[in-house]
Amino acid sequence: MIQTENLCKTYNDLMVVKDLNLKVEKNDIYGFLGPNGAGKTTTIMMLLGLVPKSGGKIYLLGNEMKPNNVELKRKIGVVSENQYFYRDMTASEYLNFFGEIYEVENRQKRIDKLMSAVGLEKEKNKNLGAYSKGMQQKLAFVKALLHDPELLILDEPVANLDPTSIKQIRDLIEEEHEAGRTVFVSSHLLSEVEKLCKKVGIINQGKLLAEDNMDNIKRKLSDTVTIRIELNQEAQNLEPVLSNLPFIQGFQCKENKIEVQLKTDRDYRKDLSEAIFNSGYIILSMQAKEMSLEEAFITITQQNISLLTDRGNGQ
């Protein structure tokens, strides 16, 4: 759906995007993450042909993207970070204007359907100058979906929204994904990306540091896995046993709870359970503490860890 090959962008000798190789498959919800100034919006602008690239190639929907490839642009819906409207128009006039540009069939019916899906059906005759931030964001979604695009490109779609609006927009994105659309979401709101996306790409200083599905990224980043265990009695006598186990990197005990850091070269949970049981303890619960996307993101961007995918490593 989206593929870039060594995509580059240079502004006055400053390289803001460096040899970017993205791959978004059909029907993915792909999270494009990066701190401010990482090159996310520049990449999106290049994908849309709005900023000329300095090098590399872009393929969208199987075709090479050229700046004035209008037929390709017809198949893409875009929601940008900031909403720009003709403030002299009503929502209905605005959508009709774009509906006419995109040659949307049964335009009025489609507008009514989408406006009611985002809860704006009663506001359609309101002037856009009077729309709140949340209403503007929802309207931008309606505009992006108006022509039934195959690919949705969303740049910070829930930034500056209240929790209710965030939920509505998230539900809408999930619905559109279920309807078969490919969604490319650029965001710095990691919790939202974590809820929405199956696959992520992490960019920093114009370079793609990691691209994989969420679980693999977390797993690759961590050389230990933390296990939380609840025992039937206080764990003080267990400390010498745990210290002698070679696969344990560290542990903390507090009353009947212990937190153990295990090596990740293989699954040591069975070995750990046996060691605890043999010491006369009964395990009431055992839970692996997962690394959050936020932790993974911070680790990757702060250390610039290059966890490029197998494809990126040329394997």
């Binding site: 209008v70 720009y84 995109y102 505009k143």
Partner: peptide, 16 residues
């Protein structure tokens, strides 16, 4: 300046 040019160019509008 108002950003409406950007929104138009997301779609099938060209400079020409």
């Amino acid at each position: 300046e108002q950003g409406t040019l950007e929104v138009l160019f997301y779609g099938p509008v060209t400079s020409k």
